[in-house]
Design a protein around this nucleic acid. Sequence first.
DNA 1: TCCGCCGGTTAGACAGAGTCCAATACTGGC
DNA 2: GCCAGTATTGGACTCTGTCTAACCGGCGGA
Lengths: 140, 140
Amino acid sequence: MADRLRANDISPTHQRVEIARVLFERQEHFTADQILGSVNARHAEVSKATVYNTLKLFVEKKLIRELIIDPTRVVYDPNTTPHHHFYDTVSGSLTDIPADQVRVMGLPPLPPGMIADGVDIIVRTRPLNEPAMSGPTQPE
Amino acid sequence: MADRLRANDISPTHQRVEIARVLFERQEHFTADQILGSVNARHAEVSKATVYNTLKLFVEKKLIRELIIDPTRVVYDPNTTPHHHFYDTVSGSLTDIPADQVRVMGLPPLPPGMIADGVDIIVRTRPLNEPAMSGPTQPE
DNA sequence: TCCGCCGGTTAGACAGAGTCCAATACTGGC
DNA sequence: GCCAGTATTGGACTCTGTCTAACCGGCGGA
Ligand SMILES: [Mn+2]
Ligand SMILES: [Mn+2]
Ligand SMILES: [Zn+2]
Ligand SMILES: [Zn+2]
């Protein structure tokens, strides 16, 4: 894990390695708070400020992606391959959709002088019988 | 405007009508704070609590849509026809993409027991020469 | 060995969006 | 006009995320 950080021009401090382990060994979608909790589950190792500092650094270095899907918090995605998401509006859970099969057609030309930076697709889903929705249940 | 609210089972109070006027006459994307500011531009007419109450009500009644694109605030969209968005990651501005031309192919089947609730596409864009990005400049 | 530098970490204060509450004001059907 | 339900409101509060200023620690040079 330290080598992986070094390979991306990041000095592998103890805190950064611990955060990277949570992200890359588990390969799930995480909020900052979940990472803080996971890293410090056994005993305090990392502060809130460092979690935010480190996540920002990892995003800059393109080790992870930010997902803006939940109105109340940013979700971090250790999967940086091009992909989209199913978003269960009831439970709040996210599922990856590999992008290589997906094709979007008929998009209009970009506003002049603009360059495309990426396309995000979010498929909102809901359990078959669930009575419509308002907001997802916040886990823990 | 009062009739439009009544037609959607909403009693047209003074405050709700003022908020509806901002949303539907201007037909732009708004944050709660922008609506609060617009309605109260001349003199105080509506409180923050009422703006949030009313926006939530309008969303329930499907007069407007919530857009989750900016990590720091929800954007409200008075255009409820199916459409997607260009998102200028530098200025933060949103531009509608009518959905009728757009076709998404190759999406995998939904997780079992799930029903699709909608598909949102966000095309992130950037001015041609702009030096990549981090966060959009917050207007006002 | 000692010292200074400098990047990294940290507690806690702070900012901003959004929610909640209990008191007050309004509405509309009678 | 009365009154019961509905809506509005200031302000306290919560929560995510940012900032700051102190601190820590490894390394390199004298
Ligand atoms: Mn928020
Ligand atoms: Mn936030
Ligand atoms: Zn993902
Ligand atoms: Zn729109």
